[in-house]
Design a protein around this nucleic acid. Structure first.
Length: 565
RNA sequence: UGUCCUAUGGUGUAAAGGUAGCACAUCUGGUUUUGGUCCAGACGGUCUAGGUUCGAAUCCUUGUAGGACAACCA
């Protein structure tokens, strides 16, 4: 899986991203014995999304590239928000993306015992104290970024007293919120996180793994760096908003450990996508409010949503590689994601005929009752995929958009007197058509030219080629046509009182019934196809034995539609 | 009126003091039994002002702009 880095290093360029530069520098200097060990540390309080995929690809990618390792670690220090369901979904998603953490699946909760001992150690060193004021008071005393805070009256409590109180906190003698353990650092620091941050809080809550063993839980800042340390992590890669936490990350380690080895926190800019919201909170809101049908709704930017939509792990990994990584805020055009999935599906998806908006076409000079089994390639991009048989007969469906009563000259499809090729079959020429009282075209009448059968060597040319499905052989399927969930490029933008949900696209899902060639029978959930000339489609898990359901992953590029916009 | 981070085509991302390149998007043209794919080409960029240097996207200073930080969340 090193092909990407090899590609990058081709020629004489050594194009490294800033993370790789740092790592190579560290390796060169023999830092941490030149080891590289990363980790992906999700909190199990929601489903993973495409932004996490970037982080996963980064962390595991770096591990692979530098012959190191990557751990999966659940950052589960807050029992009130974390659930087992999320742990399972995260495991499934990371695996599906194609990464392997072997036996290195850890939990911050694995370290609760060690963390507790280290907290005691800091108390003994006079670097931590038990606070008894309310959260509100602590917050007030912390000050604001531009003004220093004031010291807590409990700040200089004797060590023995702190030890006793902390012990009793652990034993469950105090109610939630009545006390916290704070690090004694600097109430005047311009960095708010250094103003005696909370290390432990009392939470009489059942933890998804440790049950009721604990009623005090460490805060993120008191857990993350030490967890990294315990796992031998060398490069602890996280997003930009933790930049300001780094001094604290280092402070705890410096005051707890004596070894030369030390993990290093490095921050990168998180992914933003146009027409997409990416915060867990907002995604949760969409799910809970039934704006979408669950975390894996194909319109969601979650990994599970993308999977159900028909994205492949390869396409997501290529996407992550393509967008790069840096420290400046960025918004990627969602078109890049779509390009990535088309790129992969074009190579692997078998082609199939499906008519989504059917118009009946009758070939008047084709014998009634006759059926030809035509042999049609499965993928022009990959001959080894071979071909399939498609039945052809006197009455077929074509796409309504492929016929115009009064077409412009550049319209390469069917119209009165015009001739087109039916892909894999014959040329047909439109002789007539029928309309209902409302003026809708109901049937098109054509004649075919038997000399023009595909593969017969006929040299006649025609400009347009249409896909089609035999009326008698067509299989009905439910087809879910998805469009972007939001109609504005940046749904998060708060113009006045606008809620992000007000920016939702009311037409993000259209469900129709399509006519598909009979060979589609037996398709299994998540099987992917190109509906020729339309787009890439994927079998939805809602499919049953007698009802096929497809999701449109992404339409094909359509320069004709674009020109006519 | 604090600290920290960031600034390269429309959007991303390279160039480690020496030809500003690549991808997506956009536009042309070619091939094509998918108006797809593929191929070829075009358009378009170093935030400002100084300084160092033979030479600055890169180093220094200044300004400007954007972002982060004031949960007992992560």
């Amino acid at each position: 899986m090193n092909s990407n880095s090899e590609e990058k290093n081709q020629g004489n360029s050594r194009s490294l991203n800033f993370l790789e530069s740092i790592i190579e520098e560290d390796i060169k200097n023999g830092k941490n014995k030149s080891r590289v060990h990363t980790r992906f540390p999700p909190e199990p309080n929601g489903y993973l999304h495409i932004g996490h995929a970037k982080s996963i690809c980064l962390n595991f990618g770096l591990g692979e590239k530098y012959n190191g390792k990557t751990n999966l670690r659940f950052d589960d220090t807050n029992p009130t928000k974390e659930e087992d369901e999320y742990v399972h979904s995260i495991i499934e998603d990371v695996k599906w993306l194609g990464f392997d953490w072997e036996d290195r699946q850890y939990y911050a909760s694995d370290y609760f015992g060690q963390l507790y001992e280290w907290a005691v150690k800091l108390i003994r060193k006079g670097k931590a104290y038990v606070e008894e004021q309310s959260a509100e008071t602590i917050s007030e005393q912390r000050g604001v970024p531009t003004r220093p805070g004031t010291e807590s009256p409990y700040r200089n409590r004797p060590i023995e007293e702190n030890l006793g109180l902390f012990e009793r906190m652990r034993k469950g003698e105090f109610p939630d919120g009545s006390k916290v353990l704070r690090a004694k650092i600097d109430m005047a620091s311009p960095n708010m996180h250094m103003r005696d941050p909370v290390m432990y809080r009392i939470l009489h809550a059942t933890h998804h793994r440790t049950g009721d063993d604990w009623c005090i839980y460490p805060m993120y800042d008191f857990a993350h760096g030490q967890s990294d340390y315990l796992e031998g992590i060398t490069h602890s890669i996280c997003t930009l908003e933790f930049e300001i936490h780094r001094p604290l990350y280092d402070w705890f380690l410096d005051n707890i450990i004596e070894t030369e080895y030390r993990p290093r926190q490095i921050e990168f800019a998180r992914l933003n996508l146009t027409y997409t919201v990416m915060s867990k909170r907002k995604l949760l809101e969409l799910v809970k409010g039934n704006y979408v049908n669950g975390w894996d709704d194909p319109r969601m930017p979650t990994i599970s949503g993308l999977r159900r939509r028909g994205y492949t792990p390869e396409s997501i990994r290529n996407f992550a590689d393509r967008i790069g990584v840096a420290k400046r805020d960025n918004t990627i055009d969602v078109g890049v994601l779509e390009f990535s999935v088309r790129e992969h599906l074009n190579k692997i998806a078998p082609r199939v005929f499906a008519v989504l908006n059917p118009l009946k076409l009758i070939i008047t000079n084709y014998p009634e009752g006759q059926v030809e089994e035509l042999d049609i390639e499965l993928n022009p991009e990959d001959e080894t995929m071979g071909s399939r048989k498609v039945p052809f007969s006197r009455e077929i469906y074509i796409e309504r958009d492929d016929f115009m009563e009064d077409p412009p000259r550049k319209f390469f499809r069917l119209g009165p007197g015009r001739e087109v090729r039916l892909k894999g079959a014959y040329f047909v020429k439109c002789e007539n058509y029928k309309k209902d009282e409302a003026g809708n075209i109901t049937e098109v009448y054509c004649t075919y030219d038997p000399e023009t059968k595909s593969g017969s060597g006929s040299t006649r040319k025609v400009k347009g080629t249409l896909h089609w499905v035999s009326v008698d052989h067509a299989i009905d399927a439910e087809v879910r046509l998805y469009d972007r969930l939001f109609k504005t490029e940046n749904p998060d933008t708060v113009d006045g009182e606008v809620d992000f949900k007000d920016n939702m696209n009311p037409d993000s899902l259209k469900t129709i019934t399509g006519k598909i060639e009979p060979g589609i029978k037996g398709a299994k959930a998540l099987d992917k196809f190109q509906f020729q000339r339309l787009g890439y489609f994927c079998v939805d898990p809602d499919t049953t034995e007698d009802k096929l359901v497809f999701n449109r992953t992404v339409p094909l590029r359509d320069s004709w539609a674009k020109k006519n916009k």
